[in-house]
């Protein structure tokens, strides 16, 4: 289930005895745990009825004890366990999870919530949760991120978003939900109370922070999108990517294109090979060979030869390759 489904279920009065939260997105995970905490412990002081255990240092026996301890002030206790797979082996925590889930269900006095970055659905301890598995993975598609932005704007007291604002914001920040939450709050302040956030507000007030993976750069270059390639390069460098690493990735990419252009095999899934073939066709063998010279010249420039600063040398390369 999604986090919003969990919250709706809890708001509807149903709290199960055990949940598995899977995913690394901190905001989704925090939201799910906050909802559980409010439902189980209420808003008041609750330290007596709350245990937070770390998977790396917890043995199965400790978990079972925590689950079987009776509540003091609240009707139920809440036990949260983080990263149960941090310690593997015979005495790993996952060994005791199925029994803990069973006991929490039988006793009716404890809610067990386990938060894990990833979980293998075939594992015994994961199967023990049945369908009480909450997806806390970050959305990856712009449509999903934009949907989150609209929900979040609504949650923050009904912040009004103008046409295209959610998509623009998703493009600028990417799937970093905590940042998005803060940006929505900031943009609401920028627009002023009761006013709608417009694209102009986003353009003026929100920096482009979306992380740019290196393959965004190679794709933009390979597809001849020079403007996009320059933007991605700037983001990579401002995020601290070392110039030689960027150059290495580009060299590797063009080597693969050259291999494909000469009929050699290139490892990778079919869709990647297809993409590379399309790009290799776009360049042609002659231009691919001359691109190696451009890469070589940039390598020399990065190592101190010539008059160009490293970032300028990389820009020159990107323009030459994508042009």
């Amino acid at each position: 289930m999604k986090v919003e489904e969990l919250v709706a279920e809890i708001d509807g009065g149903e709290v199960r005895s055990a949940y598995l939260l899977v995913g690394e997105e901190p905001l989704l995970r925090d939201d799910a745990l906050d909802a559980l905490r409010r439902a189980v412990l209420g808003e008041g002081a609750s330290d007596f009825d709350f245990d937070r255990l770390e998977g790396s240092g917890t043995k199965p026996g400790v978990l079972l004890d925590a689950v079987e301890t009776l509540p003091v002030l609240s009707p139920r206790r809440l036990v949260i366990v983080s990263e149960p797979e941090a310690r593997r082996g015979a005495r790993g925590l996952t060994e005791g999870i199925p029994e803990a889930v069973e006991r929490a269900g039988a006793g009716g006095t404890c809610v067990l919530a386990i938060a894990s970055s990833k979980a293998d659905k075939r594992a015994r301890w994961v199967k023990a949760f049945g369908n009480a598995v909450v997806d806390c993975a970050a959305p990856t598609r712009t449509r999903e991120i934009a949907a989150f932005i609209r929900r979040e704007a609504e949650r923050q007291g009904g912040v009004q978003l103008g046409r295209g604002v959610a998509e623009l914001l998703a493009d600028r920040i990417g799937p970093q939900l905590l940042l998005l939450r803060n940006e929505i709050a900031k943009l609401a302040l920028f627009a002023g109370e009761g006013k709608s956030v417009t694209r102009e507000h986003v353009a003026a007030g929100t920096a482009s922070l979306a992380e740019a993976p290196i393959w965004d750069l190679t794709d933009a270059i390979g597809e001849g999108r020079a403007a996009d390639a320059l933007g991605v390069l700037a983001r990579l460098l401002s995020a601290g990517a070392p110039g030689p690493v960027v150059l290495g990735s580009l060299t590797s990419h063009f080597r693969r294109l050259l291999r494909i252009a000469h009929g050699a095999a290139v490892a990778g899934p079919p869709f990647v090979r297809k993409k590379l073939e399309t790009q290799a066709r776009r360049y042609g063998p002659r231009r691919l060979r001359s691109s190696l010279d451009a890469l070589h010249q940039t390598d020399l420039a990065l190592k101190g030869a010539g008059a160009l600063r490293p970032e300028l040398a990389l820009e020159r390369l990107v323009i030459a390759l994508a042009g």
């Binding site: 020079a226 403007a227 996009d228 320059l230 300028l312 820009e315 020159r316 042009g323």
Partner: peptide
């Protein structure tokens, strides 16, 4: 360099 960038990516002022 600025001229080249602005000619190729006119919408990317931040560059």
């Amino acid at each position: 360099r600025d001229l080249v960038v602005l000619r190729i990516a006119p919408e990317h002022d931040e560059l």
